[in-house]
Write a protein that binds this DNA or RNA. Sequence first.
RNA 1: GCCCGAGUGGUGAAAUUGGUAGACACAACGGACUUAAAAUCCGUCGAGGCUUAACCCCUCAUACCGGUUCGAUUCCGGUCUCGGGCACCA
Length: 863
Amino acid sequence: MQANYHPDSIEKQAQQDWETRQVFRAAEVSDKPKYYCLSMFPYPSGKLHMGHVRNYTIGDVLSRYHRMKGFNVMQPMGWDAFGLPAENAAMANNVPPAEWTYSNIEYMKQQLKSLGLGIDWSREVKTCTPEYYRWEQWLFTRLFEKGVIYKKTSTVNWDPVDNTVLANEQVIDGRGWRSGALVEKREIPMYFFRITQYADELLNDLDTLDGWPEQVKTMQANWIGKSYGVRFVFTHGEDEKLWVYTTRADTIMGVTFVAVAAEHPLATRAAQNNPALAAFIEECKQGGVAEADIATMEKKGMDTGIKVAHPLTGEQVPVWIGNYVLMGYGEGAVMAVPAHDERDFGFAKKYDLAIKQSIAAKDQTFSDEAWQDWYGEKNGVCVNSGKYDGLAFDAAVDAIAADLTAKGLGEKKVQFRLRDWGISRQRYWGCPIPIIHCASCGDVAVPDDQLPVVLPENVVPDGAGSPLAKMPEFYECACPKCGGKARRETDTMDTFVESSWYYVRYASPQCTTGMVDKAASQQWLPVDQYIGGIEHAILHLLYARFFHKLMRDEGLVQGNEPFKNLLTQGMVIAPTFYREESNGKKQWINPADVEVEVDAKARAIGAKLKSDGLPVVIGGTEKMSKSKNNGVDPQAIIDQYGADTARLFMMFAAPPEQSLEWSDSGVEGGFRFLKRVWKAAHDHVEQGIVVAYSGGELDAAAKALRLQLHTTIQKIDDDYGRRKTFNTAIAAIMEMLNALAKFPTETAVARSVVQEVLEAVVLLLSPIAPHISDALWVELRPGTVLFEQSFPKIDEAALVQDEIELVIQVNGKLRGSVRVAKDTDKATLEALAVAHEAVQKQLAGAAVKKVIVVPGRLINVVM
RNA sequence: GCCCGAGUGGUGAAAUUGGUAGACACAACGGACUUAAAAUCCGUCGAGGCUUAACCCCUCAUACCGGUUCGAUUCCGGUCUCGGGCACCA
């Protein structure tokens, strides 16, 4: 056996061996239970970063562990290949997005292979290929005909200089990232998925997801945001109605104005003869559409001069335009109750509008001087509200809703915060929307026999609008209905659409008759374990759940939910650095190129670019991403230490769900550990391998070692299977190895115990460090291969202990310990504790109040 | 602004159901081996105090303030800071 650990050669050999033997091909036919282990597929950005290593190692550990536990494992991989970065790269390097994407995929695939992941590459999918997206288009046409997809206008970020729609990410401080122009809101027609139709189901089914983190379910529930409220009207003139919705109908008597969006018809009308108002409406159009920006911007408003009638009092209430009211959400108008809503209060103070108290809480006084937290609470009663005075929240809402209903001016209504999903993108590198616009037939879905609508691949976008809209050879077509001259839709789909169903495609990736082969979908779905970043907690995971229900309703899949168990990996974050260019654009600099200066407490106080020694600005510590250029390429670590060290270190650094600030200090330690494992095996093998211990008289040291071994097996089984904390599993293996190093090996029976320990250690380590484990296994058990072994079995006899150690506390503070026979009764333990020297010293004559015994753990003497 | 998390030694972390705070590592320091270095091995390693007979004992300490409990890193209330998401980054 080789005396030293050489990861280079053993990793190459192991990977080759796996490939030759097709070890990771998921069996189509098997009598074992299936285990579909899915890691979120990567966007092919160019190189892997540490976040990928973390994600895919977790998936691989779980896959390999389940394989050892007797499952028929499927672990596929693919590429979320459409998207914005490819267009940006195309413009920067004058390369078509397709070419850039395919070459990135080739490179990253090699990187993934060099990590030794047990992936069934025969199932690889790339979402940018027509073989994939034709089925997305097919489903689109089905849903379009069913009315699940419809068209309406929506607001986008418009760059008036580049004449193009911008993603939220491309709007920086209200300006276009390339042009620097002030961004405007613009209404354009778009296609929408009617996800709100599934809102109730998406909400209710969260309760069935026992294998999901509570945190994610809470976020989704809040995002869907089911609320019970009242929808009612303020009337204007004879019969014009201004609809609003509120969850606080109990405060309706405190309404002192109504705020409408700048695009509201009422606002448009009021502005016709009012230049100042028209100018304000223009001003409201400035800025982007991102909710975070809208929620944090300064609240501004202007009186329209229009008054509407309060539905219950008939009182005339002024209508204001508010820049914080959005046309696209709800009714585009909101009632304002400054006395009981903090935002309205601020608005009323700013513009000197009336503040009318209509709720009172016990022992509290109201003043319109400054906002008090209790003003907005629901546990008060109505005041200054006529016949509703004295009513608490529920009763007030009921009474008010009843009166509004009687007058025909409103009703109770359940509403969702969730909005329909707009999927039209005015971009090139995406899946074409399969619609044809005909002057006489309207919007017509592309018929099945004309699918796929193929995206031309040899195009370099120029950043000024969609290239497809400038390509007559793409958009000129005949109407499928009347045969007349028609125009093909040139928008593409949101890339979230591709990632909403890829998990289904993996079941039968080459299927040419539909999205998925029925038998394959029945065999593999649902996904047993899904693993991915917590940043996808809402959008991707909600869309995928929605898609599963859409596909179910098309008869393509069974069950209501796609992912049985979800592990949300914490992000790998890293510091960001940048320099500001003269036009205000930020140039992001990779941490690897920066030298950081730290103070005594290890906080960064300054940073310099290594190449020119000049300072750079320190940004936040954020998730590794292409856009902030703070990704760390794992290749250097793999090249220097090997994949096993990279995997081991990443798993050892923190439990999977925790976010992790990247640092490579400690990689060396991981490598050192693997070298020690190698050496321990080598030392043993050189003495001659033996049959692992299977019975016979043992001394105390050997008994203790076997006790530790079998508690370790038990613990690691739990860590891999239930807890999914791989860091503690590794720590336990390290402890096992430390104990083995101190174990004397003079006798034959001792050497058989060492053999037992080494075999178990190699198997326990193999999900995390598979290459070295493969190589060591062959040395320990020549003629057998590791991937045919099952997980080590626990020997119950080794776990039996006669004596245990109990901790003695006085008033909850540790004062000593005592070794006792395992089944010592409570009274004896109490007496032992009270008599203990350290306890007597603490008592110093004081009386014992009581004694608490926690079996197997401690005895607490209370004085 | 809203929703969801996190905060423990110099550093990454552990403590699984309310029961010994700091396992396992990294770094640092001391030693052995070596002509030397690397590698390897052994030891020390939260802060403060007490005692040098002793690695004996005591106090404090899990972001901060308060509460529940015999006992709180763990549960509850509040505050601060950091991270994620906010519908066109993926």
